[in-house]
């Protein structure tokens, strides 16, 4: 039976996310996993700079707000000092795959026992919809007003594919939250990530294809359709790497 009560790991603070934004769903999934594993008191979450910058107000576990892109390094600092605690980062595409690429890849290569929740919505939401590293070819954003040209702006970054080549990674999985079936798969992936962490088996990253109705200029329902039609072909869902590294 699904439980429709608010997870304990979420606070009562009303979220500031735009209508139709999928951040709320992903927050809830992370919180449900924390509740189910009974680890709220032993968990430290790291927020990014981006739309989810204030996630520290929404999660009930101890929270740290990191500089833009540095969450994996911050998480490393917490985890190395507290190896028996659970540490997760919650990051967007600009944070994780542009300014923080080095921190992401190196936390992964070290096989840090942390879990990264990666929200890919192809845009910089908080600053008003600029091109992200994951913006699709041809996609119009504030800084690609004529559509992203691969000749000029290059190609979108496929994070799971990159991390599938990294030895320290225990889990790299791409999911989405467009419908109940996918939401359930997303939660299972997040749970898997935390389990790898629990057993100290390496770095886990769960990429969640997400929507940004506001900056995409679409209704929430249209946004889900656009995601399915445009994002999933470029960013196929599935497990890219799975298995304990230690």
């Amino acid at each position: 039976m699904p439980d429709f009560n608010k997870p304990h790991a979420l606070t009562d603070v009303p979220m500031h996310y735009c209508p139709g934004c999928t951040h709320g769903i992903v927050h809830r999934l992370v919180a449900e996993v924390i509740d189910e594993m009974g680890i709220e008191g032993d968990t430290i979450g790291i927020c990014p700079v981006g739309c989810s910058v204030m996630a520290y107000d929404y999660f009930n576990c101890d929270m740290i707000e990191a500089a833009h892109g540095r969450a994996p390094a911050v998480a490393t600092g917490v985890k190395r000092a507290n190896p028996d605690k659970f540490v997760f980062t919650y990051q967007g595409d600009g944070d994780l795959a542009a300014i923080g690429t080095a921190e992401t890849v190196h936390a992964a290569t070290r096989g840090e026992n942390i879990t990264a929740i990666f929200i890919n919505n192809t845009t910089y939401g908080m600053t008003g919809g600029q091109m992200a590293p994951t913006t699709l070819p041809g996609q119009v954003t504030q800084t690609t007003p004529y559509g992203r040209s691969t000749d000029v702006e290059g190609f979108p970054v496929r994070v799971c594919e990159i991390l599938s080549q990294v030895s320290g990674v225990a889990l790299a999985e791409r999911v989405t939250v467009t419908d109940p079936a996918n939401v359930r798969k997303a939660k299972a992936a997040i749970r898997k990530g935390f389990e790898f962490q629990k057993n100290k088996q390496g770095f886990s990253l769960i990429e969640v294809l997400s929507t940004c109705p506001t900056n995409w200029g679409k209704s929430p329902v249209e946004s889900l359709g656009w995601l399915k039609e445009n994002m999933i072909p470029y960013y196929p869902l599935g497990v890219y790497k799975e298995g304990a590294i230690r």
């Binding site: 911050v74 600092g77 917490v78």
Partner: peptide
């Protein structure tokens, strides 16, 4: 950059 942010994380946890 990573090193100082590791310090930030570690110090955040009181160590």
């Amino acid at each position: 950059v990573a090193a100082i942010n590791m310090v930030y994380g570690c110090a955040s946890s009181g160590i």
